[in-house]
Each structure stands twice: as C-alpha cells, then as structure tokens.
C-alpha cells in the first residue's frame, strides 16, 4: 500500500470527525461517561483492596523457638521461612528484645522493680519470629509448614481474622469483576449504538465508494481511524477529570472523617493512575476500533 493512501485514510478519518460534529460529540460524550464510571469504580476497588491488604499485613503469625535453641539453628529457620512465597517479611524478636520490650511496656513508671531481675531474663525462652504474610489466605499452609520444622515449639495465630480478611478479599474480587463486566458490556452497547447510528447515516456514502471500486479496506480505514480517535479522546477527557478529583476526594474524606485516618490508607494518585491510564486508553481505543470495524462490515456487502 502507498504511503499516500495511508496518509489519505488518516486525513479522511480526522476530517470525518469534523464533518459529523454532532455524532462525534455524542460518541465522545458516551465514551467519556463510560470511562469515567469505570475510572471511579476502578479507583474505589483498588483503594479498597489496598486497605484490606494493609489490614492483612498487620496480622502476623508468631513462631516460638524451642528452649535453648542455638543461634545458628534460628538463622537457618529464618532463612527457610523467608523463602516462602506467601511471606511478606519477618521480624525476629530475641529473648533480650522481648524482655526489653516488656520492661518498656510494663515497668515504665516503676523502674526500681526491674532491679530485682538484674542479670536474669524471665523471658529467656521467648525468642520468637513474627511472620507477616502477603496473602492471608495462605496462613494455613504456612502454619502447617512451621509445624513441620524442628526447633519451633509453639505457633500463635488468629484464624478468624485471617479467614474474615481472606473472604472479604475474595468477595471484593468477585464484585469488582462483575461490575467491570457489566460496565464494559454497557459501554460496548452504548458506544456501538452511537457508532452504528453515525455510520448508518453514511450508508449511502459507503455504497457509492463500493460502486466506484473501493476495496473494503479503503472504505473501512477512515471509519476505523475515526473510531480510534473518538475512543482516544473519550478516554483522555475523563482521565483528566478523574486525576483532578481523585486527590480532592481523598483529602475531603480524610478531613471529614478524620477518625478513620488510621484505618483508611488510600493509594497515591500516581499508583492508581499508573494502571488506570493504560487500561482506560486501551479500553477507549479498543472499543472505538471494534465498534467501527464491526459496524462498517454490515454495510460493505455491496
């Protein structure tokens, strides 16, 4: 194909947008509304997931080492545990650390009481490993693994917290998948309809093109260029608006409900938009391409 033909098709696609201003505006508005809704939902879901994840990582499994266990053995166990896929990070608390922390927590205002324990560590057998998980649903597997390790005498865990958070996570996954699917279906339907109307108006034009010897590609290319540009514009506008309101909304929530500040850990805009921007652009361009491609096909059988 000649470069001049490609250039011509691109130019015609752009010209078509201006020739059919009302249709183009309607399509861009429909696309923007869909992507905007999608964006809002996406931001809510990722933040929700983030908050649950934060809560998950706060839940630790504590493994207590055998009495009189050697330092080498402890290090060996720590390395083994760290290698597990479900482990996010670990925190080793030696007997000395445990005693120090105990003193800080309970003898802060009665330091003279500590003197009675000089050169003695009542918690000398409480060396332990706090294990934080990246996926709380794997807690059971980890516990089974820990139970099989020689050198660990006791494991403390909270099964109900793990189960609740894990179930909650699964629920969010299902709900978000369902809503995303519904939103996508609605978007494709609405945008497809708008494009169909726009192209049907130009059915006669397509017929003329075909009768004077246009190939299907030549007829279709400007419509596809048009669809892609409309899709692109229809996703860029709502992204700008979403980016602007995202920070504002978080700030507002944090000010208004400052009691929740510790509980709600919102994601920074950059993190949300690093996924949302490419997703929305692919969605916009993809829907624009697919709609114009399928709708023109109907009219090409001349």
């Amino acid at each position: 194909m000649r470069i001049s033909t490609i250039y011509y098709c691109l130019k015609q696609g752009i010209k078509n947008i201006f020739r059919n201003k009302m249709f183009s505006l309607a399509s861009i508005a429909t696309m923007s509304a869909c992507i905007f809704l999608f964006g809002i939902f996406f931001a809510v879901v990722v933040n929700f997931k983030h908050i649950v994840k934060e809560a998950q990582t706060g839940v630790a499994v504590t493994a207590f080492f055998d009495e009189g266990i050697k330092e080498d053995k402890i290090n060996q166990i720590i390395e083994l545990v760290k290698k597990r896929a479900e482990v996010d990070h670990v925190n080793y608390v030696s007997a000395e650390d445990a005693w120090k922390k105990f003193q800080e927590d309970y003898f802060k205002n009665a330091k003279e009481l500590v003197k009675g324990f000089q050169n003695d560590n009542p918690l000398k057998d409480s060396a332990n490993l706090e294990i934080y998980l990246n996926d709380i649903s794997m807690q059971k597997d980890l516990v089974t693994f820990l139970q099989s390790i020689d050198g660990i005498r006791q494991i403390n865990k909270s099964e109900s917290t793990a189960e609740t958070l894990s179930n909650f996570n699964v629920l969010i996954g299902y709900i978000s998948a369902a809503i995303i699917l519904i939103l996508l279906a609605v978007s494709v339907f609405l945008i497809g309809n708008t494009v169909t109307i726009g192209i049907s108006v130009r059915k006669e034009e397509i017929g003329i093109m075909k009768l004077i010897g246009s190939t299907d590609f030549f007829v279709r290319a400007p419509f596809i260029v048009e669809g892609i540009i409309i899709g692109l514009l229809g996703s860029i506008f709502p992204l700008f608006i979403l980016y602007f309101i995202y920070n504002e909304a978080i700030q507002y929530i944090m000010q208004r409900f400052n009691i929740l500040v510790k509980l709600l850990q919102f994601l920074p805009a950059e993190k949300v938009f690093s996924t949302l921007i490419p997703t929305a652009l692919i969605l916009g361009v993809g829907i624009g391409f697919i709609s114009s491609f399928t709708v023109t096909r109907k009219h090409l059988k001349v």
Partner: peptide, 16 residues
C-alpha cells in the same frame, strides 16, 4: 473492486 474500476457509472440521482 478491481473489476468495477473498469466500469464508469453515472446515476439519475448523481450519488456524489
């Protein structure tokens, strides 16, 4: 399309 390029066609309603 290639075949139609050998035929010029004019209609009553011009079809411009």
């Amino acid at each position: 399309p290639k075949f139609r390029r050998n035929i010029g066609v004019v209609f009553q309603d011009f079809r411009l």
